[in-house]
């Protein structure tokens, strides 16, 4: 009896689409919300543009608590919230909610670290031009760390790819769902290994694309080394 490749390929195509959809959508949300969060953490830090010790501590603590939760816990804990937002707690679209909520603090911390790399005298030079804080954030902090930020988006996307597979545990759709349902629970090793392989290839491609983009926009000489 020969293996039903046609069915598997069809399923792989559908679930790859679902996975990409989940990763893409949650990365976009993570970037949109995580960037301001990272800026807030950086700017309110003791030596930041606008030191606010209390805000810095409180926001930092919330970020770390969310980040320390295992994703599965977040997934289960957020079922009600997900239902309220997208009308269901099953499927790819439903998975986006916990994925994004988990990724926002993750990306926020990455942004904070990347911004910290900007040389203090560069920022001071900008301060002495009489630029507003908003202008310094836009034209100096974000612009100077653009390569690092692009790389951070890549790291986040790859992390979300992994979490999206976990979302499959609870019927979240995507390649993880296929690997668990058809592969593991259905004793279909071909399906299991194929979905894992496709996940790996997507991870490699994501990493390569973002690293390449980060290097392409970097004007520093050391970037070539």
């Amino acid at each position: 009896m020969s293996y039903d490749w046609d069915t598997l390929i069809g399923e792989l195509q559908t679930t790859t689409g679902e996975t990409l959809y989940m990763v893409l959508a949650s990365t976009v949300v993570a970037v949109l919300l995580g960037t301001p969060l990272g800026i807030l953490l950086h700017v309110t830090a003791p030596n930041g543009l606008n030191p606010r010790p209390v805000t810095h501590q409180v926001v930092g603590a919330v970020v770390d608590v969310v980040r320390s939760l295992p994703f599965v816990v977040l997934l289960i804990a957020l079922t009600e919230v997900t239902h309220a937002i997208v009308g269901t707690s099953i499927g790819s679209t439903a998975s986006i909610v916990p994925l994004a909520i988990g990724a926002v603090p993750f990306f926020g911390r990455l942004v904070q670290n990347v911004l910290r790399e900007v040389n203090a005298s560069v920022v001071e030079a900008a301060i002495t031009t009489g630029a507003t804080r908003a202008k310094i954030v836009r034209s100096v902090l974000l612009r100077e760390s653009a390569p690092g930020l692009v790389a951070a988006v890549g790291v986040t996307a790859v992390a979300l790819l992994g979490y999206s597979a976990v979302a499959g545990l609870l019927g979240g759709g995507g390649l993880g769902d296929l690997a668990i349902r058809k592969g593991y629970q259905g004793y279909d090793n071909t399906a299991l290994y194929m979905s894992v392989a496709v996940l790996g290839v997507i991870a490699l491609i994501l990493q390569f694309v973002f690293d390449f983009a980060a290097r392409a926009i970097d004007k520093r000489r050391s970037a070539a080394i």
Binding site: V122, V140, E144, A146, K219, R220
Partner: peptide, 13 residues
């Protein structure tokens, strides 16, 4: 006008 101590140019500009 200020020329700060050390490298202070924006390296991406």
């Amino acid at each position: 006008g200020v020329v700060p101590q050390g490298d202070s140019l924006l390296r991406q500009r």
